[in-house]
Simulated scan of single mutants.
Amino acid sequence: MSNELTNRDFWKNYWENKTGLAFKVPANYTFHKIIEKITTGNKVKSAIELGGFPGYYAIFLKKYFGVDATLFDYYIHTGVLDEVLDANGLRRTDIGVIEGDLFKIQPEKRYDLVLSAGLIEHFNNTKDIIARHLPFLDPGGTLLITLPNFTGVNGWLQRKYDADNYSKHNISSMDPQKLADYCRQLGLQNVKACYYGKFSVWLENKASQPRSIKVLFKLLWLAGKVATKIVPVESKNLSPYIVVTATKPN
């Protein structure tokens, strides 16, 4: 792959050392309201999750909506995938699985829904990586892109206490207006981009942090939850995610 901030070895090491991956994907999984609206409103029959290992959204779509779902990623750990599928009452044959390079593959089919969650921010050329989604998308189909928002409180926490992980993200990609402009420049229609979620923070290396940082983390989390309960707004400073939706012209 090109222009990336990570490589295959990074993801191989990441997934081989990650714990707690095999869980039952719940009906209220992150972004479930958006996905349900798209899936039911547009009568989605097929979908592909790009860069989505271990395939939680492909599983979500198959499990709760009966969508013909496919997982595509640069690195697939088959052992982990089988464990995740088994935790959700599924087998490898229940979803499509493609391991490949997004910058080299020529899709054999197109899909009603193309989604990626936490993919585009790992690349320097944001417009280009968005464009890589489009060959998979059927005319009239929907594009759904989600990414973390590291431009507010969560970003400050990441930058200060997990600089290595922070450096693997293209912070300039985390701009809803810029993302919407790129989508329109690529010829997409019905483009919407916004901050999403009331408040949340996380650290990939939280378990290894000293107690003082864990206490700070908890205080920030509680303060943010209280603040957004009183004033329930989605904003640059507090929202944990950015969501982009668009459709491909017929």
Rank of each mutant, 00 (worst) to 15 (best):
D73T: 08
N165V: 10
I120L: 04
E99P: 14
L143R: 02
L71F: 11
H77V: 00
R91N: 12
G155C: 09
A117W: 12
Y64G: 01
K127Y: 00
N154Y: 14
Y75R: 03
L144I: 03
F136M: 05
P139T: 05
V114W: 01
K160A: 12
P148N: 05
R132P: 02
D73A: 12
D162K: 13
L81P: 03
D128F: 01
Y56T: 04
L61P: 00
I98G: 07
E99L: 15
G89C: 08
T146Y: 02
I95V: 15
G152H: 10
R110S: 13
I98M: 13
I145S: 00
L157K: 08
E83T: 11
V67E: 06
L134T: 06
F103V: 01
G141L: 03
L61A: 10
L115T: 01
E83Y: 09
G89N: 08
S167I: 07
F65I: 04
K160G: 00
N154L: 14
T142Y: 02
F150N: 08
G79C: 04
L85M: 09
F123H: 03
D101R: 09
F123Y: 13
P107I: 12
R92N: 08
Q106P: 02
P107K: 09
K63A: 10
W156K: 14
G100K: 11
H133A: 00
F60S: 06
Y75P: 01
L147K: 06
T151W: 09
Q158W: 14
P148H: 07
E83W: 05
I98Y: 14
G100Y: 14
F60M: 09
L90K: 10
T151N: 08
K63L: 13
L71H: 09
G96V: 13
D82F: 07
L81C: 09
P135Q: 02
P148C: 02
L137E: 00
T146R: 03
K62Q: 11
F72V: 04
N154S: 13
L90W: 11
I59P: 01
L71D: 03
V114T: 06
L90S: 03
K109V: 09
F65H: 13
V84D: 05
Y56D: 08
G96F: 10
G155Q: 05
R132H: 15
Y56F: 13
P107N: 11
G155K: 13
A58F: 05
D112S: 01
I76R: 12
